[in-house]
């Protein structure tokens, strides 16, 4: 999964549903580790800013 950094509000909602702990939050940025990600799509479904998709 990929995050559109222009849309992301760094709210952490995606982190709270990730079943494999693939999402890290830095001070001003959320980053998905695609080596860990299983593409379940939960983060994209709950992202209130609709900033996450399965392609860049």
């Amino acid at each position: 999964m990929y995050i559109n950094q222009h849309l992301c509000d760094v709210c952490g909602t995606c982190v709270s549903v990730c079943p494999v702990d693939a999402i890290e939050v830095f001070e001003t940025q959320v980053v998905i580790d695609n080596d860990v990600c299983i593409s379940c799509g939960k983060c994209a479904q709950v992202c209130p800013a609709r900033a996450i998709g399965d392609a860049l």
Binding site: G12, V17, C18, V25, Q45
Partner: peptide, 18 residues
């Protein structure tokens, strides 16, 4: 907050169902 990363670092399952 909602992301609850400290819990994950401690080995707790804090992941929420949709």
């Amino acid at each position: 907050g909602v992301e609850s990363r400290v819990g994950r670092w401690a080995g707790m399952d804090t992941a929420l169902a949709l």
